[in-house]
Design a protein around this nucleic acid. Sequence first.
DNA 1: CTGAAAGCGCTTACAG
DNA 2: CTGAAAGCGCTTACAG
Lengths: 327, 327
Amino acid sequence: MTTIKDVAKYANVSVATVSRVLNKKGYVGKDSEKAVLDAIKALNYKPNSVARSLYHKSSKMIGLLMPDISNPFFPELARAVEDVALTYGYTVVICNTDEDEQKERRYLDALMQKYIDGLILTTNHLTKEEYESLDLPLVALDRIISEDIPTVVADNFRGAKEATSYLADAGCKLILHIRGPKGVHPADRRYEGFKETVEERGIANLVVEAGFKINQAEEVVYNLLKDYPQIDGIFASSDVMAAGAMKAASRAGKSIPQDIQLIGFDGIPLGEMLVPSLTTVAQPIYEMGAVSARLLIKQIEKKPLDQLNYVLDPTLVIRQTTRSVDE
Amino acid sequence: MTTIKDVAKYANVSVATVSRVLNKKGYVGKDSEKAVLDAIKALNYKPNSVARSLYHKSSKMIGLLMPDISNPFFPELARAVEDVALTYGYTVVICNTDEDEQKERRYLDALMQKYIDGLILTTNHLTKEEYESLDLPLVALDRIISEDIPTVVADNFRGAKEATSYLADAGCKLILHIRGPKGVHPADRRYEGFKETVEERGIANLVVEAGFKINQAEEVVYNLLKDYPQIDGIFASSDVMAAGAMKAASRAGKSIPQDIQLIGFDGIPLGEMLVPSLTTVAQPIYEMGAVSARLLIKQIEKKPLDQLNYVLDPTLVIRQTTRSVDE
DNA sequence: CTGAAAGCGCTTACAG
DNA sequence: CTGAAAGCGCTTACAG
């Protein structure tokens, strides 16, 4: 690799001068500038990021901590973060923590040692104090860690209310909610939205908890369908769970949407691939990722933040697992 | 951050000695060693990777170039690469190239400037010469770039033959193959496997090309189903395409597997989520990623490679989109 | 406007 | 066994 010294020699100037034209900083005479530019081109010189990082204590890299990239909610989020990062000249490092505190710590250590410039957290297994003691720009995405950490989430509560109301309007008499694990912020909020709505409207309802994997939801729903054949509406806390519910319904001999109407949550591509295609509360996933990345980079570059917390609106996307509501 | 100097001062030794115990290299007296170890603990010292990189011209990072992480084939691959990399102390940087030469070049430049230690390529829009001129350990994954570059692929040809034979055995009389874009290695091989099989067995067949997105496959198949209502078997070049075919069949009033039997390719989680669940040729995706990562790291660490090219066996996973073959 | 020098935090010959 | 020094490739005061 050619270094700044080679360029300096070729251009007959000092490395300081080369550095100045590289960074467009400080005075440089016209002639020197041209000589340097020519040398750079002739030698196809690219400045060494590592040396720059060492001096600046900054790596132009951001970390994206997530539970598991192979969970279908995350790739699009990661994609958005990458796209925005690329625009601003940052590289992103994705870390799969598997919701495991030890793994999260290890990754954090490794990133700190690399002068990572900031972190987007979609996972939170350390305390707020630990995150803050990192002394790094931070954004909490899809989870809330603390008041002080800029946050980007969808309005899970509202999305859940809309979905539940829709099922009610569509005539469901006994609605099952498949909720996600307790303590996981979005799962809790969706549950609360569901609960408030069925209570307001006085609708009979059932709630079961399932993990985010499809088989769990399928089993849970299948068993419930045997005990409560009157269930005619299901609101699932994720699209994957909804897919599980579809499989359960099929096994139980129930057809969707004739016997049971179903609404998922997330808006991942899976929904469109199912037959019938899935009615769902779509989060603006890409936008959430993009907003987070911009918010993080603003902090890194010490620009003013006009807003600390973003609550983005989800959209109820009507597809084929619900019957049309006549109004 | 505490530096090696702080540790040296605290332990009353020189930085050279600290470095020696850090790297377990060179002679260090028992007493000094203990003093240094204590100092490291007391100060919670972590060596700075950037400084190390600068000296060693190596970053302990590997690059993973892929078309698009939100294409459902890639997250699991990425996950496997990450897992193995973590084990060996490497960090992975994922780059989404969108099959775009310009983006690929930009990423490559950025990575080179960071002293990236090696690259896993699932995308190839530069020439073999360009890749080799990077002068970096390389692994081609799921695509073949050149004889000289270690490669990990699934046996696409064999998988296609198995799938096609299975449809034939199951009694299909007119089989449609939805093939992927020409020039993409796996798509070509699957096509060839299909073609060879139908010809060997003298089975009527049709071939259409579709992109890797679901809507394209759906449209193409829907139109074909109108013109050729006799189609009773479909072999799709990917699971996503197969999902598109399912939607098309449903729209055309055909039921699966009664009227049409369907087999996909890839073995992504989607297949299990569909109703009926998808019979598919499953690639060992996780293993492909893991093998690639190990192969790359071996090169980086200059260990001998016992094998240069890995062709892994896919498995025909029978689920519900095919009828059982009676033998 | 420009260069010599110090420094970012490490590692490794080189002396001793 | 241990330390002083040079060097990895940059950047930025500091002189001039």
